[in-house]
């Protein structure tokens, strides 16, 4: 890799520097409370730690409502965190004023799930793609147009769509517009929030391949939020698994999929259907009981304990911290699966 190696950062896979560091991040929402005039506090993100290393795709998975989008938005400072820090390329975003944050914003962009809702129907495709440049650069109209056209080309949108409107496009093409809008200002870091979830499988594969090649070509660092675990495995270098506002496990992709250590990760993986009837009929599923509890009233101790088959008394009284025994594999559980018996494991950092 051509990136400079910094003096001393956290133990990074392949010794790459962490471009993004999230520590103890929390986000609260005020929601109307039943039978009370005072709003209740909903802690959607409750103390999240994450690192994204330069040039990698970090997958964030977890079920609906676990706080993936909120985490992504708080990282980009589109939502104000109520606790914790977000550091990007050495700059603590959470401590920046508006003006300096604006300058940083060009370097960090977002791709949204619903390509239609996020595009102004009255703007042409060309204008939509140029729009971020109006905010982030002093380019002339001519330069902006040229940049929009090259970006359209980059994401595989025919430039003849330039003067057309979003409603004339298919879902997959709209998502390409969303990707072009995120990339037109040459960001280093992109949060892609469920960018393929709304698409049909055949179109989904087109967009996954596009994101993959764009990441390689542009050396992007990406946070890829999704609930499809097979797509995440295909695309990502490292994965963070979230449950009810917290990260319960982080590991390198293969590590996580071959040896999940948190019971929730195990259940999640066993629930993914595999398109092969022989495997499906032989397979023994770990079916979780019950539903995800409300974030308004999360369980004490380990938040997963109400659905966990391993839960003991300690799980109710003590919150397990995200700790790492094997290098790079972190898990927040009192009774995690033992780490992989890796003969070649590097010595743990102290």
């Amino acid at each position: 890799m051509s990136h400079p190696t910094p003096a001393a950062t956290v133990a990074a896979p392949g010794d790459r520097p962490a471009l993004l560091q999230v520590r103890d991040l929390a986000v609260d929402f005020k929601v109307p409370a039943k039978g009370s005039l005072r709003p209740a506090n909903l802690r959607a993100v409750a103390g999240v730690d994450l690192d994204a290393y330069r040039g990698e795709i970090l997958g964030v998975v977890g079920e609906s409502g676990c706080g993936k989008s909120t985490t992504g938005r708080a990282i980009l400072q589109l939502l104000k965190p109520s606790q914790g820090t977000v550091t990007f390329d050495g700059v603590e975003l959470t401590a920046l004023g508006r003006g300096r944050m604006r300058a940083m914003r060009r370097r960090m962009q977002m791709i949204f799930q619903d390509p239609y809702a996020s595009l102004n129907p009255r703007m042409t495709i060309g204008d939509l793609i140029e729009e971020p440049l109006l905010v982030h650069s002093r380019a002339t109209a001519r330069e902006r147009r040229a940049k929009a056209l090259t970006t359209m080309d980059l994401v595989g949108l025919s430039t003849r769509w330039h003067e057309r409107y979003p409603h004339e496009l298919s879902g997959g093409q709209r998502q390409r517009v969303g990707i072009a809008r995120a990339l037109v200002s040459d960001p280093e870091f992109v949060v892609a929030d469920e960018p393929v979830s709304a698409l049909d499988v055949s179109i989904q594969a087109q967009i996954v391949n596009l994101l993959e090649s764009l990441q390689e070509e542009l050396g992007l660092t990406m946070m890829f939020i999704a609930h499809d675990l097979a797509v995440v495995r295909h695309l990502c270098d490292r994965i963070a698994v979230m449950y009810l506002g917290t990260v319960v496990e982080t590991a390198g992709c293969e590590d996580l999929y071959t040896r999940p250590r948190h019971p929730y990760t195990q259940a999640l993986l066993s629930a993914v259907p595999i398109p092969d009837p022989l495997i499906e009929t032989e397979r023994r599923r770990r079916i979780l009981k019950g539903d995800v509890p409300s974030p308004l009233n999360p369980p004490t101790g380990c938040r997963f304990r109400t659905r966990c088959w391993k839960a003991q008394d300690i799980c109710e009284t003590q919150t397990p911290a995200l700790t790492s025994e094997a290098a790079g594999h972190q898990v927040a559980c009192h009774f995690p699966e033992p780490p992989a018996p890796e003969p070649a494991a590097p010595p743990a950092h102290t």
Binding site: V201, S202, Q204, A205, V231, R233, H234, V272, I274, P275
Partner: peptide, 18 residues
């Protein structure tokens, strides 16, 4: 359709075939 979906039970790597 089958080439468009990555599978958890198969080795990683290689592009999808949309």
């Amino acid at each position: 359709l089958l080439g468009s979906v990555p599978r958890l039970d198969q080795a990683r790597g290689g592009k999808l075939r949309p």
